[in-house]
Amino acid sequence: MSEFNDLISCFELPPKLQIGNFSKGMKMQLNVAVGLSHSADLLVLDEITSGLDPIMRVTILKTIKAYVSDNVGTGVILITHNLDDVNQICNRLVVLDHGSKILDKHLSNIDKNNLLEVFEKTIGRSEKHDWNDFKGYHSNSK
């Protein structure tokens, strides 16, 4: 229970506020505190930084990384669309497409500066757009 309380303090969650009154980010932080306080051998974290401000996002990622470092043999499956989160704490990248594994590489074998490019090539598309593609979404008229 003390690890849970330490995490609640670290995340600056108000202990007397009802969970129903928590913001989305606060609920995500609470989920992390609950998950890490059970000394689990495997954590499955789904979009764990979604809804967090940039400072708390970094705090959560550092907390997860420290947890794994302090608990040898612990594994984390991080489900995310945020490739920066992958760069921050992951050592392996697995990409699934409709339930099939289409990429499984250790990040030491991938140029982390080009992770988006690797992802785009893996899924077979590029997210590069010309601003002219969006001309129907705005108007210059007054």
Rank of each mutant, 00 (worst) to 15 (best):
W131F: 14
S69H: 14
K24A: 12
L93W: 03
I55S: 13
K16E: 11
H106E: 15
S126G: 09
I48F: 11
N31K: 12
D97G: 00
P14H: 06
V58N: 13
S2F: 08
F22C: 07
G124V: 09
G35Y: 09
D97H: 09
D97S: 08
N91C: 12
I19G: 02
G124W: 04
N82L: 08
S141R: 13
S141K: 14
T59C: 03
V44M: 14
Q29F: 01
L52H: 10
V72E: 15
L52E: 13
T59E: 05
I19M: 07
I110V: 10
M56H: 15
V44L: 15
D70W: 04
D70T: 06
I110C: 03
I19E: 10
D41K: 15
V44Y: 11
K65S: 12
N132W: 00
T80M: 06
N21R: 03
G51A: 08
N114A: 12
R92Q: 08
L93H: 01
S141P: 01
G20A: 02
G20K: 04
L61Q: 13
L116K: 10
V68R: 11
R57G: 06
K105E: 09
I89V: 05
E47F: 07
I55C: 08
L83E: 02
L30E: 05
D111I: 01
Q18P: 00
I60P: 08
N109K: 08
R57L: 06
K128W: 06
K101W: 03
D130N: 14
Q29P: 01
E120Q: 11
I8K: 00
S2M: 07
K62Y: 07
G20C: 01
A33Y: 00
I123T: 07
L45M: 15
K62M: 08
K101E: 09
S69T: 14
T74R: 10
N91Q: 11
N71G: 05
M26C: 06
R57I: 05
P15T: 05
V34G: 05
I102W: 07
A66T: 13
K101Q: 10
E3R: 12
L78C: 03
N114T: 09
V44K: 07
L52N: 12
L103H: 10
N87L: 01
K128H: 09
L30R: 08
L78H: 03
N31S: 15
T74Y: 07
N21Q: 13
D85A: 04
F22Q: 06
N71D: 09
L61I: 07
N5Q: 12
K101R: 10
K128G: 02
N82S: 12
K135V: 06
D84L: 08
M56Y: 12
D53E: 13
L36G: 04
E117K: 13
V86A: 01
R125V: 10
L17R: 14
S139L: 01
G73C: 08
S69P: 03
N71R: 09
G25T: 06
Q29Y: 02
D41A: 15
I60Y: 01
M1R: 15
W131M: 15
H38L: 15
T59H: 04
I89L: 02
L61V: 06
L115R: 02
